[in-house]
Amino acid sequence: MYPPAFEYWSPKSLDEALSKLQELGHDGRVLAGGQSLIPMMKLRLAAPANLVDINNLTDLAYVRADNGHLAIGALARHADVVDNDHVKTISPTMASAAPWVADPLVRNRGTVAGSIAHCDPEGDWNSVMLAVGASVVATSTSGQRVIPIGDFVVDFFTNSLAEGEMVTEIQIPRPTGSAGGAYLKLERKIGDYATAAVATFLDLATDGTVSNAGIALTAVASKNLKVTEAEQMLIGQTPSPELFAEAAAVAAAACDPESDVRGPAEYKRAVINAYTKRGLAKALAQAQGGAS
């Protein structure tokens, strides 16, 4: 299958890439790993007139522990965050999700930031990012802005980048206390999209109560869904199986799955309920075990 023809640009520096994106405006699109964009082009679901390939911007291929947050550069591949010590230390939810994104070959090429920018509601990373309260750094020739992930993920394949902007970094805040997290994904086979998946995150205060909580859902709405109501039920409380069951029921009620080849809507809702409960229990066990 041949994608539609396009003009190809291969900048050697970030400045060059940003100038090109500024010049192209709406007609320019960033090519990072291409593991979603190229298949969509082959199926003629996307037909960008220009691709700005950022694979030469190797300075952006970092996974770093900065003050206050974990920083993932625009060119860090999915494989770079699998079994990564910084990721394991700062974001247990992300560490849990990393091995379950696509398959090993796709993980070698696809990028974390690209997947986040793609905003496919069946993508794994945006649920993780919503659960842990990540931010997206968007850069253009006129400067930089830091966009909270909740404002970045607008809807079905839609992010809030302006023309001429590209994602240069993802920032995941360090937990303040003892934290745990999980990403539970039901998939028919490795490499398939999730039938349904749940990202959970718990940060515990010294008295054992929940100081921060995150719950976000994959493949059960028109975008990755942060369940704020369920999170609020947990914050300030002493965690318990009963509390988790109540939060899980809220998450299951909040989602809006569609019946398709991966299962009927009712089934997916039941999976969300079970996985939210299970994910919160895993996050709690990890947080109480002292792993943060």
Partner: peptide, 8 residues
């Protein structure tokens, strides 16, 4: 290793 059908 990568998938050469998904790279230009």
């Amino acid at each position: 290793p990568i998938k050469s059908c998904t790279m230009f």
